[in-house]
């Protein structure tokens, strides 16, 4: 990792942005779990174990120009783009001021025009053709945008993955397909989802595929940055398969010990990208335990305030049920 850091373009500021994002996402996620278990919120779906890949990917993109199509575990990605913990908490508490959907959708169904995050849904992989279409629109208008779409390995089996990749390959569109292979599609393990490697599919679509260790922030960053440069140079899409592990159950409604062992989970927890990043930062002299403690305290404080704020915030008024089914007023 040392060599990669030195060879890459990581500054201390970049490392810090990435690491702090990972910690903010991790502490948010752990708190969301506690809130659900204590009956404060209805549901949570976790991204723990995937934050390093998400944060590193976001750091390699341009938040001013690029177009984002995240999936439902992308908390670190969203935090890196600029969604606040207050906003995530409003979403978790299903309140009217939730910028993603005003409490209309489940948590994790991101969408925020301000952050160039396109609205997503629950049927998986549907966002993949959207990313391709937005990239096509960007090209038609001569914009510099690159579309970045993330999804799990389970989603890679949907027709929309294939149709989207093929379309983007044929038209050499500026799209980064970012598969977060967390080894489980709810309970079905990777080996019962795919017979080959997801990354190898890229060749069939006529573009480059790269597999990276998702716990290695430098490797993910390099892969996304290279993919972005390629897209910007008109060299078409890239499929990145980031190998991660879903530490938490699929959602708060899932008992993961029905299909995997504690030992397996603990093995992967030991390889957690968050700890690896911290260890690297300390070793490189960029971080100290005092800074770690200060960051954790800041996160805890921000979460406490966000919870108080979200708890007090109003739900959508019942009278708004039929709002925004179609546009008010006529043609534009």
């Amino acid at each position: 990792m040392e060599a990669q850091h030195a060879a890459g373009s990581w500054t201390e500021a970049l490392w810090r942005r990435c690491y702090e994002t990972v910690v903010r996402a991790r502490t948010y996620d752990e708190m969301a779990h506690v809130l659900q278990r204590s009956g404060k919120v209805a549901f949570h779906v976790s991204g723990i174990g995937q934050e390093t890949a998400q944060a590193a990917a976001a750091c390699a993109l341009n938040t001013e120009t690029d177009l984002f199509f995240p999936y439902y575990r992308d908390y670190a990605f969203m935090i890196a783009l600029g969604m606040s913990v207050d906003e995530l908490m409003l979403s978790l508490f299903l309140k009217a001021a939730d910028p993603n959907s005003g409490g209309r959708q489940m948590v994790g169904h991101f969408g925020c025009k301000r952050l160039r995050v396109f609205t997503g849904s629950s049927p998986v992989a549907t966002q993949i053709p959207h990313a391709v279409g937005a990239a096509y629109a960007a090209r038609l208008r001569g914009e510099e945008a690159v579309a970045f779409v993330s999804f799990g390995e389970g989603s890679s089996n949907q027709g929309d993955f294939h149709e989207g990749c093929n379309f983007a390959g044929v038209h050499q569109l500026p799209v980064i397909f970012f598969c977060q292979n967390n080894r489980y599609a709810i309970s079905v393990p990777e080996r019962w989802q795919v017979a080959g490697r997801i990354v190898d599919r890229a060749h069939g679509y006529g573009f480059t595929g790269v597999r990276v260790d998702g716990n290695d922030a430098f490797a993910v960053y390099d892969a996304v940055r290279t993919a972005r440069d390629r897209a910007r140079a008109g060299e078409g899409p890239t499929l990145i398969e980031a190998m991660v592990y879903r530490i938490q159950p699929h959602s708060t409604a899932d008992n993961d010990l029905l299909y995997r062992t504690r030992e397996e989970i603990e093995q992967h927890r030991a390889r957690d990208g968050c700890s690896a990043m911290r260890a690297y930062g300390i070793e490189a002299g960029m971080w100290s335990m005092a800074q770690e403690d200060a960051l954790r305290a800041q996160c805890a404080h921000a979460l406490k305030q966000a919870i108080e704020y979200a708890e007090r915030a109003p739900y959508a008024d019942a009278s708004t049920l039929c709002d925004h089914i179609v546009a008010e007023g006529g043609q534009r």
Binding site: I128, V132, A137
Partner: peptide
Amino acid sequence: SARVLDTPLSESAIVGVAIGAAMHGMRP
């Protein structure tokens, strides 16, 4: 041909791509 675009034989992508383009300001 950029504005009269022949697509792969792929109906879900035709609509999905149109949705993405529409969300990004086009009128497909």
